[in-house]
Every structure is written in C-alpha cells, then in structure tokens.
Design a protein around this nucleic acid. Sequence first.
DNA 1: ATTCAGGTGCGAG
DNA 2: CTCGCACCTGAA
Length: 280
Amino acid sequence: MSELSISPPYSLFRTLTCGQAFRWRVDGDTAHGVFAGRPITLRQRDGGIEVLGLGGSRERDRLFSYLGLDQPLSAIEQTLGADRVLRRILPSTTGIALIRQDPWECLVSFVVSAFNNIPKIELTLDRLCRTFGDRLGETAWSFPSPDRLARAGLFELRRCLLGYRAPYVRALARCVDGGRFDLAAPAAVAYEEARVLLLDLPGVGEKVADCVLLFAYGRGEAFPVDVWVKRAVERRYFRGASKSVRDIQAFARGRFSTLAGYAQQHLYSYERARGREVRS
DNA sequence: ATTCAGGTGCGAG
DNA sequence: CTCGCACCTGAA
C-alpha cells in the first residue's frame, strides 16, 4: 500500500463521479477501478489517498497526474470565485479536479456518450471491456485496444448495447489502428488545431472533442457544452434567454479563459444535482 | 405506452 | 452556414 498526498479542497469522490470517466465504482470515500493494467482501490483519508494494488513509483507518479493531484485547486477555485455565479455554486461542488485520462479510452467513452444516458454508457463500456478487454482480476478488465476493436464484428459490438454507434466505434478504432489518426498529435498542437484534428474522427462532434481535450489532453480552455451546461449558462448568465452553443462557448472562454474547463465541471455538477432534486 | 438520455451526421434551404 | 430530423435501447 502506498499513499498519495493531497491538499484541500481535493475530493476524490467528486472528481470521480462528476462524469469525466465512467469506469470507476465509487462508494463514499472508496473507489475501485483499473489503472496501468491493474485493478486498484483508492481511499481518501485525512491528508492523502491510500492506494492498493499499484506497482512501482513510476505508476504512482502517473496516478498522481491522472487524479489531477498536481493541480492547485485551492488557487483555481479562489480565482473562479470572482465570478458571482460560481461563488454561489462552489460550496456544493468544491474539490473537483480535472482528471488526465488515457486519450483512447476517453475518446471511445464520449463517442458512446452521445445521445445516451449515464447508466447505459457505464453498462456499455463495461460490456466492451468484458468482451474485448483482457481479464485483470475477478471483476476487472482492461479497456480494449484500438487493434482489438478495429477487428471486432458489428454484431459483437452491438451486443455491448452500442446500438447505432457500433459502426462509429469500429471506424474510430480503425482510424487509430491504421495510423490515420495519431493519438499523440493533439498533445503537440494548440487547442484550436487539436480540436480540428479530433473533429475529423467518426462520431466526434464539438462536444465530444471538447470532452476529450479537457479530460485526456488537459486543455483547460475546452468548455464542453451539453444540454445541462447549456441550460445552466442560459439560466444563470442570460436570465433564461436561449443561446446557441457557439455563443455559449465564446462567452465561457472569454469569461474563464484557461479555467473554462473547471467552470464547466462546477456548472455541470451543480445543474445535474439540482435537476435530480427537482424531479423527485 | 411514451418519453428521455452528456450529440452527431446528414440533407435541404 | 444554419436548421431540422432520425437515431439503438434501457429505464422511469
């Protein structure tokens, strides 16, 4: 067992349950998942995060980065608090870090997320891993490689509840596997250019591209606009007036600059939590 | 039974 | 370029 040191206001629970990644099973302060090819368990304690099941210090460092523990959250939230809307929201969303996940898994995850709901996205990704990934433990599988999904049959893919997205996922895998798309390329260029590269992929539109840029490539300027964020921005910044996705992105980048991604996470989390309350 | 989900790709105007 | 529409499928 090893321990990663953290500083306030970091929250493992909020970071892993705010919809950036879909394969962690979180229960209170404990999370089970797969990292670096191993099933691991994380538990947030007073001054740190206990890690069970991880290999050496190299993997430890990678996990530190993956979980966003290198981000100065306190300072970031203090800056965001200058915004009157976020200042009111932050008390109930504080502690969310942006995770730095594997681009391939992130890409597939958000292509699957299109016009879908979160429980089914999780179910689909789990089935994809069980069907095409390598077994790593009793109930743990690796995320399937581009090569493996490139060779998958559409029938098998559909059995993972991919529905009409099955051809997109396979085409995406073939782009990566065949070398037509280099997963390292977006990391080497500016945000706008990286976005254009991603938009060329099948099943990847503006929203998915921004999610991948934010959650895998660490581009804080990205501001993914989904129905929840659109609703939140319209309601809280434009008195309920309807705005185009373009306008909302322009507004967010102008207002939050390289912290737009954090702003998005807080707005998204708050709006969803509020939406669930209203329904019940 | 109907409706709703973290949008995207498509054809039309 | 913007706009409207269809879309797998399970869960409420």
